[in-house]
């Protein structure tokens, strides 16, 4: 079976800027995949190359087995892209925009599906409103809707939740998750790492046009991140010397420890008891993607 997305040896320069420095990546059908990286890492460039908006200097990209250059029409029919930039056509209403977008893909009678998308993105009440009169978050949702009109098996979302309020973010992810359950492949970029951690089964981290980490989300968390322990001692108590060496730092009067696993906590608590310290407050943090991300970016 063809992978949903195949990227082989893709490089791209903009003048002297190397936006993509040899990217290889395969994303299987049905995956919920996260593409992470700091500003300027090359995420949007990679997505643009996939969508045929950017011509690569070298390498090949394919969507569901269709080369995005040689077989661009088949490839584009199978791909839905939510662009990062908030763009819209001020001449048209929400519904008109979606009907026109359907027409571009050769779909004439799409009212039922358009209604369903509008409903799921909570845009029904705004269907006949001109694009100019929408708020930023609503415009963003219309962009999501536009990417879905042709029911693409592969959906790429470039920071779809920037500027979208909490409630709708939940609704949007509910909808995207459902599409994923129905078999759509989802690729997502976001700077909200918690979002990626909750949603994505697999993650690639990009830095300066190169993939510096690629694994399942669970493995990444296991590999790069441990538990954190925050301790606040009762007033008048000082941290024993032996433990002071183990702390990662002190924040708001609390000591922070970084641990490989939960067992480490016991040892620290035992040391405190032996030193006669009493603890005011204790908090155990689970491994999180933000820490993984920072560590990977430091190393990579």
């Amino acid at each position: 079976m063809n992978p949903a997305i195949r990227i082989e040896g893709v490089t791209k320069c903009f003048g002297s800027v190397q936006a993509l420095a040899g990217v290889d990546l395969e994303i299987a059908e049905g995956e919920f995949f996260g593409l992470l990286g700091p500003n300027g890492a090359g995420k949007t460039t990679l997505i643009s190359a996939l969508a045929g908006l950017v011509r690569t200097d070298a390498g090949h990209l394919a969507v569901m087995g269709h080369d995005v250059v040689a077989d661009y029409r088949a490839a584009r029919r199978r791909l839905g892209v939510v662009p990062q930039e908030l763009v819209f056509d001020p001449f048209f209403s929400v519904r008109e925009s979606l009907e026109i977008q359907s027409g571009y893909f050769g779909i004439r009678d799409n009212a039922a599906w358009i209604d369903e998308i509008l409903e799921n993105l909570d845009l029904t009440a705004k269907a006949d409103t001109n694009m100019r009169q929408l708020s930023g978050g609503m415009k963003r949702r219309v962009l999501v809707a536009q990417a879905l009109v042709h029911r693409p098996p592969v959906i790429v979302l470039d920071e779809p939740t920037a500027g979208v309020d909490v409630e709708l973010r939940q609704a949007l992810w509910g909808f995207i998750r459902r599409l994923n359950r129905d078999g759509h492949t989802i690729v997502l970029t976001t700077h909200y790492l918690e979002e990626a951690e909750n949603l994505c089964g697999r993650i690639a981290m990009l830095k300066q046009g190169r993939i510096v980490a690629l694994d399942t989300t669970a493995n990444l968390l296991r590999r790069f991140s441990g538990h954190t322990l925050r301790l606040r001692l009762a007033p008048g108590n000082g941290l024993p010397e032996a433990l002071r060496a183990l702390t990662k730092g002190e924040a708001d009067g609390a000591y922070v420890f970084s641990l490989e696993n939960c067992e480490g906590i016991e040892g620290i608590l035992a040391d405190l008891r032996n030193a006669g310290c009493s603890v005011d407050d204790i908090e155990v943090g689970k491994p999180d993607l933000e820490e993984v991300f920072l560590r990977v970016m430091e190393r990579g």
């Binding site: 029409r73 930039e85 571009y104 042709h150």
Partner: peptide, 17 residues
């Protein structure tokens, strides 16, 4: 207009030759 506002991508993404 489409280029300056960026909505040119709406016609660049579909399979229009």
């Amino acid at each position: 207009q489409s280029k300056v506002t960026g909505n040119i991508i709406f016609v660049l993404l579909p399979p229009i030759s």
